[in-house]
Design a protein around this nucleic acid. Structure first.
Lengths: 211, 211
DNA sequence: TCTGTTTTTGAATTCCTCTTCAAATTCACG
DNA sequence: CGTGAATTTGAAGAGGAATTCAAAAACAGA
């Protein structure tokens, strides 16, 4: 029921094929969050996109392919967002604090984290999802490792273990608290989770991370 | 196609109603692992149980109810197993090490952890699953907290933060590495994950946990 | 405005799952 | 054994969702 073309009339531009595909990827992302990676249906995606099933099929004859692309896009978005917040900062301690925050959902409804969580179970069954999730994890580990190594080189951090170990644990903690928050743990929200992870980060870096 | 009653003839005992329900819960558990909590179908459960859909429906007119019971049973099993391994031990350091190991999957196919992972995504959508998962998390935290407090009281541990914080982080790490392992991370298996968690546990307890 | 192409619709069809239920089977008990 | 209750089957029907496709609509470019 959405009026899709209001702007298009003005701009006098039909949506290009790739634009439409991006629309569909976004619609699929929302549909997955709403219905689960295994419960999502063609009609759900169509509804989110304001189209009919036939139109979706015209662009993506195979729904599974669209779902994989949606997951991939969601991960990219999540990761890019974190990187972007980092470039503005220089102090390793500040970087670490900001990065920890940016890895947590803003609340139980946070769409980015909800989407990632959908993959968790499926990754055990579906190799494609397993690879996607693993590669995201590794990139996040590298991100933390760079911060930790820089801080150590500058003498700001005194690492209690090798940076790879600490980085892996930090990402692991983020992941896990992301699940807790989206599952609506009554005592653990974004702030509490951040504080829990910071507790580890302080011990691991010897820095009080007061930001 | 399974020959179910070979033994029954000998024992001259029909499976009681509750036995059959346990069979079905077990079949549902396997079906969920195979097809996902949102993808599992009545026929999948029936196949796992060696019955037809009608027979499953005879015992559980509502499939969703069966699925919830299956999840609950899987959690209970997982948690009870961990507790049982603890009772044999007295040394807090040893308890801690054993508990960390028992929270990790034995490999990518570990059915108990695979089942729990299935809940992760669904817990964001389905309140019942959220509650189940949250209560399991809290119980595991208590389990760790008891170990930590005992160790601290005995002077074996010198805790770097309050026991609740450390316990929450330990369970969180287990959770996260459970996902990594079932997603077949090429570098992180049960041993590596245990070592990563132990790295944190050592820093948090001031004990080298050499077991 | 006209024309050919791209995109979308909506209905028809097929496929699949759940649900129901009468009939068959299995079983405990006398 | 024979009986009645519990259990299971298998077929039929209902409901949905995926898929196909001809027709309609939207559009770009001339």
């Amino acid at each position: 029921m959405k009026v899709e073309r209001v702007k298009v009339v003005v701009v006098a531009q039909r949506k290009s094929r790739s634009d439409r595909r991006i629309d569909l990827i976004d619609a699929a992302r929302r549909a997955i969050i709403r219905h689960g990676i295994d419960g999502v249906q063609l009609s759900h995606v169509a509804e989110e996109a304001g189209l009919t099933s036939g139109a979706v099929l015209y662009h993506y004859p195979d729904l599974r392919e669209l779902l994989v692309e949606a997951q991939q896009a969601g991960m990219e978005r999540f990761y890019e967002h974190r990187l972007r917040r980092l470039t503005a900062l220089t102090d390793p301690a500040e970087k670490l604090v900001v990065t920890i925050r940016s890895g947590l959902p803003t609340g139980p409804l946070d769409p980015d984290v909800r989407l990632l969580n959908e993959l968790g179970g499926a990754a055990g069954r579906n190799r494609v999802y397993g690879v996607l999730l693993t590669s995201l994890y590794d990139r996040q580990v590298s991100m933390y490792q760079a911060i930790l190594d820089t801080g150590a080189a500058l003498g700001v951090f005194r690492l209690s273990a090798d940076s790879l170990t600490i980085a892996r644990n930090l990402v692991a903690l983020e992941d896990a608290y992301g699940y807790r928050i989206t599952a609506r743990h009554p005592l653990i929200g974004p702030d509490e989770a951040a504080e829990l992870i910071l507790s580890y980060a302080r011990a691991a870096t010897g820095n009080d991370l007061a930001h």
